[in-house]
Structures are given as C-alpha cells and as structure tokens.
Amino acid sequence: MRDKILYIIGAVALILLARDMYLITGFPAEANQGAIFKIIFFHVPMAITALTCAMVAFVASILFLITKNFQYDALAVAVTEVGLAFLAGNLITGSIWGRVAWGIWWAWDARLTSALVCWLLYAGYLMLRNAIEEPTQRATFAAVFSIFAFIDVPIVIFSIKWWRTQHPQPVFWGGGSFPPDWSAVFGWQMLAILLVGVVFTAVRLRQEQFQREIDSLRRMAHAL
C-alpha cells in the first residue's frame, strides 16, 4: 500500500517535471539575462526544498529527544540527506548561472556563500552519524547537533548578508524580471521538486528501517 502511494507520487512528480521542462524550453529568453535566467526554475525550488528539509530535520530531532522514538531519528537522517542533495543541486546550478551572469564560477555572493556554509553544517551532521556506532548514542548526538545546526542557519544567513553589504559589491542578484505567465509554471515546478523530495525521503526512510531490521537480526544471530 505504502509502496503504491510512493509510486503514484513519484509518477506525478515525473510527469509534472517533464511538462514543466517542455514549457520552460518553450519560453522566450528573458529580456535582461537571456536564456540562462530559466535555470531559476530548478535553482530556487531546490533551495526551498532544501530549507524545508532542514526544518523537518529540526522538528524531527526535537521530537526524537522528547519521545526517544527511533522513527523520528530515521526521519531526521533521511530528510537531512535529501536536503543536502537538493542543496548541492542549488549550489551547482547557482554557480553555472553565476558563470554567465557574472563571468566567474564563484562570486562570494551572500546567498551562495550562506548556502555553502549550510551545506557544510549538514555534511558535518552526516559525518558525525557515520562516526558513532551505538544506535542510541548516534541518534541522540545527531539530534543535538541538528538542533545546533538549525539555530545557526538564520544567523549564518543574516551575518553573511551584513558582511557582503559592508563590502563594495561587485555583482548583484537583480537584473532579471519574472514575466507573469511564468509564475504558474514556477508554482508547478516548485510542487514537482517538493514531491521528488518527498519520494526520496520516503525511500530513504524505508532504508533506515531495513538497517534497523538488519541490526536486530544481527543481535539475534549473536544471541544464538
């Protein structure tokens, strides 16, 4: 039953993505930035999905610390990993956009920089998990770190914004305008990418359950 729902969500997401790709390539190039502006259809939804993932991870971590229910721990890992994948997509598409718009692959633009810092933060989360063997300890420590990391996200974003506005800015984000008939497609694309995120998370969650099953089987094998 659960698998069936997953397949349906996945199929809907794929159809939406294909439809949006078709529409996006059909759009005329944007007046100021040309064709490259259209990358926003992937770039921004990926960022928003990643942020949503971070939020879910934060809530799941708190719930784990309160209830000690390993379901929440599994959710936190799943969602963090998926969020990292999407944030990587966001960073790389942003970098490609920057190469055209600014002429360089990496300008220390406020948004790119804070996205990179957040990526490092959550990569640290996965590394911490990898380094701890004992499941309860791993879940508890990872949850604590996840809370620390999530608190840091707004501080990072604001401080890097201040940092960049203090310096002479070589580049600006602006220059592109969003034609009104793009908004609807953008909304659908947003939904499609979010759905992809949901499917990924669900699959990853099931893998965590497999892992726990393996652990318990191992324990049984040891007991025999």
């Binding site: 933060l121 640290g124 380094a131 701890i132 770190f145 990391a149």
Partner: peptide, 25 residues
C-alpha cells in the same frame, strides 16, 4: 559529543567551525 567516537580530533573542528562561522566572521 565527540569524546567517545573514532577520529575525535578530526571531528571537533569539522563540527565546530561551520557553526562558528557567524561568530568568527
């Protein structure tokens, strides 16, 4: 957090520096 784990000496800066970025900045 890292006292009991493998690679303790490496993990502390990996965890601590990204969190500290705003303060250090």
């Amino acid at each position: 957090l890292t006292v009991n784990i493998r690679l303790r000496e490496v993990m502390l800066p990996i965890l601590n520096f990204p969190i500290l970025i705003p303060a250090l900045l």
